[in-house]
């Protein structure tokens, strides 16, 4: 129930190969996140899986059955769109019940399933409203409700939280994760927010220009990035990169060190520099240090490390946590 396999899938728009060729396996019950910079083809890939876009080449197998030529409705997948795509003239009740109505279910069955979904999603009081009378978070939940009532083999989410404010986003993130725990259905989730990717995923697929850069669990990607792109993309603030003569002692073309793995001191260290901007978050402080001969580096220190703009500081990378890359940008292990 709910494996999706992509074999050699490619997508060309006109002369522009948005997705050159992708192989990917999504296991049943997994929460897979596609993450990557804007325009890298995340939505396109999701729409290929959904059947809203035809593949140019390759095949898509859902549940062991070749679904490449199947129309969207017959793939047994549900999708939650970025704009929610609720039907504006229908009540919440009819919106959620629409897929069941299209499947010619009994009126009584529909009512029961809609009521169940509404209870799970805290929408019971809003069933008779129109979408425009709901808040962003409620609309989001209606869209999810519409997706869950027909018990799909897998859910597809395309940046579902990007229209919500920060606090609500954290909430909905938890709710979706909770939903995944409860339903244990495969979920494929597209986002460009790496915090969402790290917190929700069982497996992250990092995409860049239509290519898969790395597939792995969040901590895998954090600890063992395969290449410079993944190293720079995963982690916040992003990893510091040092190349040239300063990287030679580490036997690498480029060495990378995360801000949280730099030890700061006011007395001595490997590198020295002046403090530029200091971002105080309370518990932590992010220091942007202008390191002599290297350039700006970001370091994370605890909130009570007292420095101000213009102070001299010393930085020492934690030798265990240094990432090394060769001249092609691939990790040296």
């Amino acid at each position: 129930m709910g494996n999706i396999t992509l074999r050699n899938v490619s997508k060309v728009f006109g002369a522009h190969a948005v997705i050159p060729s992708i192989d990917l396996n999504i296991n049943d019950g997994e929460f897979v996140v596609f993450v990557g910079p804007s325009g890298c083809g995340k939505s396109t890939l999701l729409r290929l899986i959904a059947g809203l876009e035809d593949v140019s080449d390759g095949e898509i197998v859902i549940d062991g059955k070749n679904a490449t030529e199947l129309p969207p409705a017959q793939r047994g997948l549900s999708m939650v769109f970025q704009s929610y795509a609720l039907y504006p003239h229908m009540s919440v009740r009819s919106n959620i019940g629409f897929p069941l109505k299209m499947a010619n279910e009994d009126k009584a069955v529909i009512d029961k399933k809609v009521a169940d979904a509404a209870r799970v999603l805290n929408l019971t009081d809003y069933l008779d409203r129109k979408p425009r009378q709901l808040s962003g978070g409620q609309r989001q939940r209606v869209a999810i409700g519409r997706a869950i009532v027909r018990q799909p083999k897998a859910f597809l989410f395309d940046e579902p939280l990007s229209n919500l404010d920060a606090a609500l986003r954290v909430n909905m993130r938890l709710e979706i994760s909770q939903l995944h725990q409860d339903l244990k259905t495969t979920m494929v989730y597209v986002t460009h927010d790496q915090v969402e990717a790290m917190t929700m995923a069982d497996k992250i697929v990092v995409l860049n220009r239509g290519r898969i850069e790395q597939v792995g669990s969040p901590l895998d990607l954090y600890h063992k990035p395969d290449n410079l792109f993944v190293a720079g993309f995963i982690g916040s603030p992003r990893m510091n990169f040092v190349s040239g003569s300063s990287a030679t002692p580490y036997k690498a073309h480029t060495m990378g060190i995360r801000p949280e793995h730099l030890v700061l001191s006011k007395e001595s260290g490997t590198w020295s520099g002046t403090v530029g901007v200091a971002e105080h978050l309370g518990s932590d402080t992010f220091l942007h240090v202008n390191v002599d001969d290297i350039g700006t580096m970001t370091a994370r220190v605890s909130g009570d490390f007292a420095v101000t703009h213009g102070d001299r500081v010393f930085l020492t990378p934690d030798a265990q946590r240094v990432h090394r890359f060769d001249d092609k940008g691939l990790a040296i292990r």
Partner: peptide
Amino acid sequence: DEEQKEAAQMDGASAWSRFIYLVLP
């Protein structure tokens, strides 16, 4: 909205149902 049409497609609505429930309203 294009996404509404696609959502209806995913929901299993035939062309005729999409016309009745989405386009006409």
